[in-house]
Design a protein around this nucleic acid. Structure first.
Lengths: 135, 135
DNA sequence: TAATAACCTACTAAGTCGATAGGTTAATAG
DNA sequence: CTATTAACCTATCGACTTAGTAGGTTATTA
C-alpha cells in the first residue's frame, strides 16, 4: 500500500509542475486545493526540498518551486525518497539490498525469484514516467 | 513491503509443491526447513486451506497437500488472499476498489494515472507466474 | 486408548502512520 | 524599524498493523 506521504508528495509535485509561471507555490495553496493536512504537507515538502527536487523561498510571496524540469524528474527518484525501496523484499532491492536472515540461499528461493520480476516491471514503469507525464 | 505472512505462505506452498509424492506435508517439517515460526505458519496454512489452495488431514501421517496442480495456481490468487489488494492505491484496485475521499475526480489525478500502470505491470507478472514456475 | 497433527481463540510487544501542537527563522511590505 | 508572512524545526500522540506467543480443542491413526 502506498503511504499518504508518497501520495501527497506526488500530488503536490504535480500541482507545482502544473503552474504556468515558475513562481513559488505556497504550502497552504496546495493543501487547500488537494485536500491535504497543511502541517503534514509541510513536512513532506521539506523532505522534497532537502532531497533536491524543490527550492524554497521564505516570507511573503514565498513558497516552493521546481528546481529541475518536470521531464527530468523520474518517478523512481521521487518514490525512493518518500516511500523507500521499490522492491517488495529487501533481498531484491537494488538501492537498499539486505540479505534475508532466514533464507539459506537466494538462488533457490521462490519469493526471491518472483519478486525480482515484480521489481523489474515496476522499475520499468516508474523509470519511464516523469513528472511531466503526470501533468 | 511484502508481509512475512505472504512471504512464508509462498515459501510453504513452494515447499509442498516440490514434494515428489503427493503425501501430506506437516507444518513442523516446513517450519523447520524454511526457518519459520511453527505457530505463525500454522495460521497461514489454515488461511490457505480455507481459501481452497490446500487440503488437510489430521492425526498421524497428516498434514497439508495441494488440491490443484501447481501449474493451475496463479500467484495473483495467492497474493490476493495473503496480502490483500495488488494495487498500491484502493482507487485503482480491481478487486477491492474504493474511492479516495480527497480526490475530486480520478481522471485528473496524477497518482491514479501512475498507479494504474504499476498495477497492470505487476498484475501481468503475477498472472503469468504459477506455483510451478517457482518450483 | 494414546499419540499425533490440524484447528481454534485470545493476547501482546513493538513498530509505523498520519497527523497535531507550538514554536523559530528568514524574507518582504509598509 | 516593525509587522506580516511562510518556510522551517521539534516533540508528541492515538490508532492501527505486524509477527508472533500461549494454551488449549478436535479429529485421525496405530
Amino acid at each position: 500500500m502506498l503511504s499518504k506521504k508518497t501520495k501527497y508528495g506526488i500530488k503536490a509535485l504535480t500541482f507545482i509542475a502544473r503552474q504556468p509561471e515558475r513562481n513559488p507555490v505556497q504550502t497552504s495553496e496546495i493543501a487547500k486545493s488537494e485536500n491535504i493536512s497543511q502541517k503534514f504537507l509541510e513536512s513532506i515538502l521539506l523532505i522534497l526540498r532537502k532531497s533536491g527536487f524543490l527550492g524554497s523561498k521564505k516570507g511573503k510571496g514565498g513558497g516552493y518551486y521546481l528546481i529541475k524540469e518536470p521531464e527530468d524528474i523520474k518517478m523512481t527518484a521521487i518514490i525512493r525518497v518518500l516511500e523507500g525501496p521499490i522492491a517488495m523484499v529487501p533481498c531484491v532491492s537494488l538501492n537498499y539490498y539486505e540479505k534475508c536472515e532466514d533464507c539459506p540461499e537466494e538462488k533457490t528461493c521462490s519469493v526471491h525469484k518472483l519478486m525480482i520480476q515484480v521489481r523489474d516491471s515496476t522499475l520499468n514503469v516508474l523509470g519511464e514516467n516523469t513528472l511531466a507525464d503526470l501533468t
